[in-house]
Nucleic acid binder design. Sequence first.
DNA 1: AAAAAATGCGACTAATTATTCGCGTTTGTC
DNA 2: GACAAACGCGAATAATTAGTCGCATTTTTT
Lengths: 217, 217
Amino acid sequence: MKSSLTKKAATALSPRKQPRQERSSKVVDRILDAALILTREQGTKTPTTLAIAQRAGLSVGSVYQYFPNKEAILLDLARRWLGAFPEVIAKRIAAPRPTNRDEFQQEVDKLFVDTSRLYLDNATLMPVIEAITGNPDLRPIQNEYDDQIIALYAGWLQHVNPALDDGIASRLGVVMMEVGHVCRLVGLKRDRKAFDLIQDDVKTMWLALVDPYLDLN
Amino acid sequence: MKSSLTKKAATALSPRKQPRQERSSKVVDRILDAALILTREQGTKTPTTLAIAQRAGLSVGSVYQYFPNKEAILLDLARRWLGAFPEVIAKRIAAPRPTNRDEFQQEVDKLFVDTSRLYLDNATLMPVIEAITGNPDLRPIQNEYDDQIIALYAGWLQHVNPALDDGIASRLGVVMMEVGHVCRLVGLKRDRKAFDLIQDDVKTMWLALVDPYLDLN
DNA sequence: AAAAAATGCGACTAATTATTCGCGTTTGTC
DNA sequence: GACAAACGCGAATAATTAGTCGCATTTTTT
């Protein structure tokens, strides 16, 4: 059922046509750039196809040469973020298992630093993510990625403590993701100093959250 | 500038006409009920005026007798929640100041329990809140309430520790609100047992978050 | 350089949906 | 019971916007 949604979305949202000449590749870039800028300007309101075309110095028709619909444009931008996130957690799971309390705290810190950096590096994409969150058509696709990320957080927790119950790991994964996400978004809307302070708060909360389930006896 | 937004919104969103006969009061209730049910059914997608009217067994024209526009309907529902939240925190601020670590933890617990209960009591309204969050027209109004709630959380922190710096109190207020809100929403989408577990996580995180700023020396 | 393929265009279509307005009906008042 | 006010109605209006299609232009191929 989940895969059917994916497939349907993939069919409906994949590019209509691959660019074959160099000029058209640049057109695709111009469209994506315009959509990104407009989404940032307009907050959560997703830009119209006409607005995107005009901002890119194109006509609507050209936009539809390479994107089957409006959603596909935003999704193309969003996937840069949605695709990168899982990799970061997966890399942390590949690290050696911590054996004592100190190493454990270091592992939390590494996961924390890596995910935090990801938000900083992709700060310009965040308005797109927020727009997608508020868009009824695109929300389901983001939910799929979210489920994946939750599973990875849970996997990381069980990597750190293999005895951890599945249900608990999953719940903590949800909380880690939600808390991390919302705090990072709030932080990015402020200046760098405020961001850093809020990040410290996230680390404090994460550590307190997972500490009771550490159980390194 | 903020007040001008409020006033403009108030003018544009206040009821067009007060119901003068009993039947019309019931009509208003039917409209609000229909809007609530539809919002819950459709997730974040705000229902259309026609859908609301039909669900309420009315015509579109009747809806516009009492609501100036579609947004006003949702806002009417949302204010039940947005108005109740500040009261709960304000009541906690009115309580006597804790004098030792134990009393402090009890105060955190009371604030936590009271806000948590508010979410449980208003669980049916949450889809409306989520819809408003994702609606570009209504988001600014919610932001005003959010600012108010953040200020109240900050006020509560300074009530507990009067020496706490304004900036720190404000930042912690933001984090408390965001973390509390997102975790409660996630919890409500699961069963009661899962909600309770996530609530414990919130308390753990809140305590860890504010503990360093306690400083009861 | 001629033919073919790819690209670009923008007026047009189609669908959705918020809001209005004049008219018929119900309710309250005298 | 007659009159006015309130109420309820839903077809019509208006605005927005996603997506199409045939034609013009540019690039590539032969």
